[in-house]
């Protein structure tokens, strides 16, 4: 079984004196997708970084029964929390194969889903340096690298950002595959389209607070979102 349940209770993230996220609670069940939507600066990225341990945060975070919030980022990752960062953050001077290898080496066990089965388009470029890949290819690698770490929950931060429409479509396919493989998928997006096609549960954030919780299939979602953008 791939997936685990991610539970976040009353998350709070602050930078200096500014509160980026306040009192955010959510649960992502295995085999489902939860999308955080909202305008820039609404606190989406801060939420993921807070959960991942890259930013200090208050509140409780559990992966199944394991409490994560007092662990450093690296321990959370090894416990099964995969995180595809905003801006990809691939290891540019390592080859594609090495990027995957280094992630697999830190994994608690062998991944049940081979990242190259999920993303066969990476196979021909295994020996190339990650820094030489295009933005879209780097995004695919970033997802594959997270999968190689044998996670049970996968958080993805704007995976479609800056991609051509064709690659946006491909990314949605991959996300659906991840969900169907049983991972709990927590997604941050600016495009409603992605959440709609994945039939995800949607949390709309505004100024660090939850503005709405709806189903991605809800026909009113675009209007709700437009209202949230225009605050």
């Amino acid at each position: 079984m791939n997936g685990g349940r991610l539970k976040v209770d009353a998350l709070r993230v602050r930078y200096g004196g500014v509160t980026a996220v306040e009192d955010l609670s959510l649960t992502v069940e295995p085999g489902t997708c939860l999308a955080l939507l909202g305008a820039n600066g609404a606190g989406k990225t801060s939420t993921l970084r807070g959960i991942g341990g890259l930013e200090s945060a208050g509140g409780g975070i559990w992966l199944d029964d394991l409490r994560l919030d007092n662990l450093p980022a690296s321990r959370r990752a090894r416990a099964g929390l995969g995180h595809v960062l905003e801006g990809r953050h691939v290891f540019k001077s390592l080859s594609v194969a090495e990027n995957l290898r280094v992630a697999a080496a830190r994994a608690a066990h062998k991944p049940e889903l081979d990242p190259l089965d999920l993303l066969p388009e990476l196979r021909p470029m295994l020996q190339r340096l990650a820094g030489g890949l295009s933005g879209g290819q780097q995004q695919m690698l970033a997802i594959a690298r997270a999968v190689a770490g044998a996670p049970r929950v996968i958080m993805l931060d704007e995976p479609t950002n800056g991609l051509s429409p064709k690659l946006v479509g491909r990314t949605i396919e991959i996300l659906a595959d991840l969900r169907d493989a049983g991972f709990a998928v927590l997604l941050v997006e600016q495009r409603v389209e992605v959440a709609q096609k994945l039939e995800a549960d949607v949390v709309v954030l505004r100024h660090g607070h939850v503005a709405h919780r709806v189903r991605g299939t809800d026909p009113e979602l675009p209007d709700l979102l437009q209202a949230a953008y225009l605050s």
């Binding site: 991942g52 341990g53 890259l54 450093p72 980022a73 690296s74 321990r75 990752a77 090894r78 995969g82 995180h83 595809v84 960062l85 953050h89 691939v90 290891f91 540019k92 001077s93 390592l94 280094v102 992630a103 830190r106 994994a107 690298r145 997270a146 770490g149």
Partner: peptide
């Protein structure tokens, strides 16, 4: 190469 990326994979 990338401190954040490295911490995110454990």
């Amino acid at each position: 190469d990338d401190l954040d990326g490295a911490e995110a994979i454990g």
